[in-house]
């Protein structure tokens, strides 16, 4: 069979995990970016946006070092589980979360910032805590942005290559994803198989983006949130 379904399912699993984690982890970061008045906020925004411009190998390299047995995080993980994070599925998830962070946080933050401030003020004068205001007013009015962020981080993770290669390597069933599979096929001059897999990924990514843009006209901004 030409398509490596094991790699495909692994990639799907990775993408679902990453976008689910980002849907939780991205909310407080996006909330802070949307509403903080800290004067150095732009520095945090720049850090969050870094993966958009950074070569994935650079990001992957640092993640690899951070997860490796010489870093505090890596040592802590080894003491906890007995093995290193690098070249495991968990390590892949961590690297991918960082890599896709801006693709979730930016649409979240943009839609939070787009909520009429008077509605937020009204909620407060009606006695609601900031948390209640978030869940009853801000989040429901940001649903298109939440869908966009989740879908984009999902699609972005589906197609990632550099970070995966650096952090996960190429272990079938553990860290071998679709894009690495395609790379391998090309290396082996198996263009027909590479073509089939690539086409599948292309169609899949197009479908995800079509859904996102269909749901939401101003789907995505790259750039600082007002």
């Amino acid at each position: 069979m030409a398509i490596d379904w094991q790699a495909f399912w692994l990639t799907l699993q990775l993408a679902v995990t990453v976008s689910a984690v980002l849907l939780v982890l991205g909310l407080p970061i996006a909330y802070w970016i949307a509403f903080s008045r800290w004067r150095w906020k732009f520095l945090v925004e720049a850090v969050v946006a870094l993966p958009i411009v950074l070569p994935p190998t650079v990001l992957g390299f640092y993640v690899l070092v951070a997860l490796g047995p010489r870093s505090p995080l890596g040592r802590w993980w080894i003491s906890l589980t007995g093995h290193t994070l690098a070249f495991t599925f968990s390590g892949l998830v961590i690297g991918s979360i960082l890599y896709s962070l801006p693709f979730a946080v930016q649409p979240f933050a943009a839609s939070f910032a787009g909520v009429d401030r008077k509605l937020i003020a009204a909620s407060a004068t009606l006695g609601a805590s900031p948390l209640r205001t978030f869940f009853r007013v801000i989040a429901p009015l940001s649903v298109p942005g939440l869908i966009t962020g989740a879908a984009l981080s999902f699609a972005h993770t589906m197609g990632e290559f550099g970070v995966v290669l650096m952090v996960g390597g190429n272990i079938p069933g553990v860290t071998r994803t679709v894009s690495i599979d395609i790379f391998d096929r090309v290396q082996a001059s198996d263009y027909a198989a590479a073509n089939q897999t690539a086409l599948l990924l292309l169609a899949f990514s197009f479908a995800v983006l079509a859904i996102v843009y269909g749901l939401n006209r101003k789907a995505w901004v790259i750039g600082p949130v007002k």
Partner: peptide, 9 residues
Amino acid sequence: FQNLALFPH
């Protein structure tokens, strides 16, 4: 408020 700020949802 002047614009009333009813929750639209």
